[in-house]
């Protein structure tokens, strides 16, 4: 089938429009919606990162909560122990998560397939148990951000004045905009990365690792690079999430359900190994969550059934199936042959 690749400007225009609409939400929407969407945007950041790992680098990690937790704890340490701005703490959280991804990679990259997955989970458990020993940050019972932390946060003052809202609302809005920015940055970087030499190499490895090595591609090197970058993005997101949550415990920061299982669900139903997949997945997830919010834990059961249905009947996820059937491609990753040269 011919692939109908949209002209490059069309998805770009669509993306700008969507981003502008989302950016405008705090100006008109109620605070509860802003808070809700913040959580969804963070989920999307985690999903985009996990999709790079599992979908493009073949690294099926179930331990990404390690980096959410490390990012969150680093942010807390920066605020409580060093008196830094929480946003500086977020940046540090990303960097520390990336630094700690190096020893984690040394351990889990020795493992393959299911053992790799188990290895990442073990690493996350070790991090959770380890940080539970950190008495200055509350040990096993956790701690809260000091009062006024978010009120004094970078950007809250100006937003408060500009929009004439309370400090608490202004901090929600700042966090929301940062999460949106992080989504756009992650999407942009992922796209550029996948279209680069490294990204092409990753796609070759995904198709045939033996042949990839034979043309000079080092799979371990490229996969390690993705692992480190995903740890950075995931760590940033962890820090951001816990500014809004304001309270941290090892169990919440390293939650397998919240930071990996839901993420996995989002990517799988949306379409693993495609860039728009996680976006579709997160929209469906949000819709289901809204629709079923009155039914308590039944919501998780429906979510699970839906996930299983997609895996059985649309194995490439919703976006993957749609794009496979219609040939539609947003954010295409392909490299076309130079047009003038095709004529024999």
């Amino acid at each position: 089938m011919m692939k109908t690749t949209c002209p490059a400007y069309r998805p770009l225009a669509l993306a700008i429009l969507a981003a502008a609409a989302l950016a405008a939400v705090p100006l008109i929407g109620p605070r509860a919606v802003v808070q809700d969407l913040f959580g969804i945007l963070c989920l999307l950041v985690l999903a985009l990162n996990w999709n790079m790992l599992a979908g493009f680098a073949g690294l099926v990690s179930v331990g990404q909560q390690a980096f959410v937790g490390i990012g969150a704890y680093t942010m807390f340490a920066a605020v409580i122990l060093f008196g830094l701005d929480p946003l500086a703490g977020v940046l540090l959280g990303g960097l520390v998560a990336m630094a700690l991804a190096v020893p984690v990679a040394c351990f889990v990259f020795r493992l393959n397939g299911a053992y790799f997955a188990i290895g990442t989970w073990v690493a996350a458990e070790i991090a959770r148990l380890g940080l539970g020993q950190w008495k200055a940050l509350g040990g096993g019972t956790g701690t809260s951000l000091p009062k006024g932390t978010t009120r004094d946060m970078l950007g809250v003052g100006p937003v408060k004045e500009w929009l004439g809202v309370s400090s608490a609302a202004a901090s929600d809005i700042v966090l929301y905009w940062l999460a949106l920015g992080l989504v756009l940055a992650t999407l942009g970087v992922s796209w550029a990365f996948l279209r680069s030499r490294t990204g092409l190499g990753l796609q070759a490895i995904r198709d045939n690792a033996m042949a990839a090595r034979s043309v000079g591609i080092d799979p371990v090197r490229l996969k390690a690079l993705v692992f480190l970058l995903a740890a950075f993005g995931t760590g940033l997101c962890g820090g951001l999430l816990f500014i809004q949550i304001t309270r941290i415990t090892p169990d919440a920061a390293f939650s397998l359900l919240d930071w990996t299982a839901f993420v996995l669900f989002v990517v799988v139903i949306g379409g693993i190994g495609t860039l728009p997949g996680p976006i579709v997945g997160v929209v469906v997830f949000y819709a289901l969550e809204r629709l079923l919010s009155d039914y308590g834990s039944a919501y998780l059961i429906v979510l699970g059934l839906f996930g299983i249905a997609v895996m059985l009947f649309a194995r490439r996820g919703l976006w993957g199936s749609l794009s496979g059937r219609t040939g539609l491609e947003l954010l295409p990753l392909g490299h076309r042959a130079p047009a003038a040269a095709i004529r024999p």
């Binding site: 796609q203 995904r206 034979s214 076309r336 042959a337």
Partner: peptide, 11 residues
């Protein structure tokens, strides 16, 4: 052993 999902040119 082609890279099956890549185009001939991308291979």
């Amino acid at each position: 052993q082609p890279f099956g999902h890549l185009s001939v040119y991308e291979n």
